[in-house]
Simulated assay, not measured.
Amino acid sequence: LLAVSVFTLFAALEKGGFLKLRKSALFFCAVLAYLICRPYFSPWGEADMLDIGQGDSLFISAPHRKGTVMVDTGGVISYPGESWKEKRHPYSIGEKVLIPFLNGKGVKKLDALILTHADQDHIGEAGVLIKNHRVKRLIVPVGFVKEPKDQNILNMAKENNIPVAEAKRGDTITAGDLQFQVLSPESSDGRSKNDSSLVLWTVLGGVSWLLTGDLESDGETEVLKTYPKLKADILKAGHHGSKSSTSEAFLKQLQPEAALISAGKENRYHHPHEEVLDRLKVYSVNVLRTDVSGTIQYRFKKGAGTFSVFPPYDIEETRAQEVKKTAD
């Protein structure tokens, strides 16, 4: 419709009279207004686990666009090395994937950006979203800062006048019609970054979700001890399917129908681990993986939802093309 309206507008400018031009301009404006307003009239919401390589990023939008949240941003893990090995134009998931994705959805600003913990593959692109004024509110777990560099994101938010809130067990995070119950962490104790991950429970389209960040078996045990009746239809598997997460006790208690795993294709950590995949198979859990299926989308409305997958986006190949383009 947009292409047709643009064509008719140009055709009217070239050959048409005033009446034809006015009709074409009105048609173009009507189509544009429809495209802008359509999400706010749609009864469908969505949850998209984005294919961003080795990392986590989940976008959630409520029906009628009454609330938009991104949980983690992904990020490229860098390793110290000699200066000549450093790329002059490093690949940015935020600029190449996240912002184009939000633009494609018509999302000007996220109602909330939730960072589960301060690992680079979860928060590495938060700065891009903050600097581009795409975030209204930043939410981190209590005890988010484990080392000096973790403070940088909070300082950046402050510089851009973005309010920051610390969440802990028992809190409820609200963004429009979206609500998340915080199950962990309880306090800013001396636990590892992974076991200090923000653990969130929510319901989307009548289906319960448990988002676990990089929670490992010790953290899972504590959550089960605190919430002995906890169930979840959809489990975001902790730590990209690492064998130190998604324990048998966790699966036995939750009884999920499906597990989502965000991992990079042929990643160096060999995530997801075969032991985890075997455990999921034993408990008859359907597995959806970004390294196999690409972006995983769940579209939902009141009491109904459907999963679909999109062709894998080979981020390593894209990075290689960027390097080649720069060299040329």
Rank of each mutant, 00 (worst) to 15 (best):
L1C: 06
L2T: 04
A3T: 05
V4C: 10
S5F: 01
T8L: 12
F10N: 05
A12Q: 02
E14G: 04
G17D: 14
K20M: 09
L26Q: 15
F27Y: 14
F28P: 06
A30Y: 11
A33G: 14
A33V: 11
Y34T: 13
C37N: 09
P39I: 04
S42G: 07
G45C: 13
D48Q: 07
M49L: 15
L50D: 00
G53A: 00
I60W: 09
S61R: 14
A62S: 08
A62C: 04
H64K: 12
G67R: 05
G74M: 01
G74N: 02
G74S: 02
G75L: 03
G75T: 02
V76I: 13
S78E: 09
P80R: 00
P80Q: 00
K87F: 03
H89S: 11
G94V: 07
E95L: 14
K96T: 13
K96A: 12
V97W: 09
I99S: 05
L102D: 05
N103E: 14
T116I: 04
D119A: 12
H122T: 12
H122S: 14
E125N: 14
G127T: 01
V128Q: 07
K131I: 08
K136P: 06
I139Q: 11
I139P: 04
V140F: 06
P141E: 13
F144S: 05
V145N: 14
K149P: 01
K149F: 09
Q151K: 15
Q151M: 15
L154W: 06
L154Y: 08
M156I: 01
V164K: 01
K168N: 09
K168W: 05
D171T: 10
I173K: 12
T174D: 03
L178Q: 14
Q179K: 15
V182M: 01
E186I: 00
S188V: 00
R191N: 05
V199K: 04
W201C: 00
G205C: 00
W209G: 03
S217G: 03
D218T: 13
D218F: 12
V223F: 06
T226S: 15
T226D: 15
P228N: 09
D233P: 04
I234S: 03
L235S: 01
L235G: 01
K236V: 15
K236I: 15
A237V: 09
H239W: 11
H240W: 08
S245C: 03
S245F: 01
T246A: 01
S247H: 06
S247D: 10
A249C: 11
A249T: 14
L251T: 12
A258R: 15
I261V: 15
A263F: 02
H273R: 07
S284E: 11
V285E: 02
R289C: 02
G294L: 03
I296Q: 08
I296S: 09
Q297G: 10
Q297M: 12
F300C: 07
K302F: 11
G305S: 09
G305M: 06
S308C: 08
Y313M: 06
D314M: 05
I315Y: 02
T326V: 11
D328G: 11
